[in-house]
Design a protein around this nucleic acid. Structure first.
Length: 283
DNA sequence: CAAAGTTCCTGCGAGC
DNA sequence: TGCTCGCAGGAACTTT
């Protein structure tokens, strides 16, 4: 499941092949992704030079010389791979879009569940596009700190878990990294989000711990090439390695890894999603 | 308005 | 062994 670290890993893998290169042709094998590809998707990309490849939350943004931007979201099971080799367990039938680049390289969008999305948007309209307009701050950016997180959670009646999954609060986290960040911050997922709110104008210690935990877990995961459960691969085809460093995700019944804690990892369902946590050290 | 529920889709693993 | 079934989940959309 590509969350921010997985998307960033893909971005770094593709950047050298893509930046400064021209898209020679685009082959659409299945255009019915999360929503259908635009009618002029191919024509707006063909012959265009890619100026840069960047990322916003879980979105990849390929800036084109034409002032258009190709926006890509990998959804649940999407991947972008470089070259022709098919990753293990992948079927060519899920290769939905192939980009042939000048020089002969190819980038392939593969997505069994077709929850992914692609769209070409003019650069000037990008900030107003519904996909990106309402996203919260980048968790690794300067705008995200304990005060802003507390502000975003103020008055929320939902759980902390639900708030962190809400892309308006902070953009780029998914189920795995929310579980991991809460474990590191020793905060229970079912805690009220509003409990992080400012106290006497200052962010709570919990908010500060949480921001640091989010940052740390994302940076470590990026350094490890992301997490590969079923789907994610680095652009090279290599799996990421961070799944071996999960402290709670997928570890129901196993011992808590917090030093000195004798608890075990529990699982519960919140808003239809699994939360893994240690009831002993997450309060 | 906010929050919870539903939906999209397919592969996989558990259980019979 | 081979089948069915439930689960996984991001985000848009619908309902409460």
């Amino acid at each position: 499941m590509p969350e921010l670290p997985e998307v960033e890993t893909v971005r770094r893998g593709l950047q050298p092949a893509l930046e400064g290169t021209t898209i020679v042709s685009v082959e659409v094998r299945r255009g019915d992704l999360r929503f259908p590809l635009q009618h002029d998707f191919v024509s707006r990309l063909t012959g265009q030079r890619v100026v840069s490849l960047s990322r916003r939350a879980k979105y990849l943004l390929a800036d084109l010389a034409s002032q258009d931007v190709l926006v890509i979201h990998l959804g649940m099971s999407g991947s972008l791979r470089l070259g022709a080799a098919l990753p293990q367990g992948r079927d060519e039938k899920h290769d939905h879009v192939r980009f042939l680049l000048k020089g002969g390289a190819m980038i392939v969008f593969n997505d069994p569940r077709r929850f992914g999305a692609m769209k070409v948007i003019s650069r000037s309209r990008l900030p107003h596009d519904p996909m990106l307009a309402d996203l919260g701050p980048e968790p690794l950016g300067n705008a995200f700190d304990a005060a802003s997180l507390a502000q975003a959670c103020a008055g929320k009646k939902t759980s902390l878990k639900a708030a962190l999954l809400d892309q308006h609060v902070v953009a780029g986290l998914g189920n795995i990294y929310v579980c991991e960040a809460l474990a590191r911050a020793h905060l229970a997922p079912q805690r009220q989000a509003a409990g992080l709110a400012l106290r006497d104008g200052k962010p709570s210690a919990a908010a500060r711990r949480l921001v640091e935990a989010i940052r740390a877990v994302l940076l470590e995961a990026i350094a490890a090439g992301g997490s590969s459960l079923r789907d994610h691969r680095q652009a090279s085809g290599e799996p990421g390695w961070f799944q071996h460093r999960f402290t709670v995700y997928g570890r129901e019944g196993e011992p808590c890894l917090t030093p000195g804690c004798r608890g075990r990892v529990s699982r519960m369902v919140q808003n239809g999603r699994s939360s893994f946590w240690c009831a002993t050290c997450q309060k």
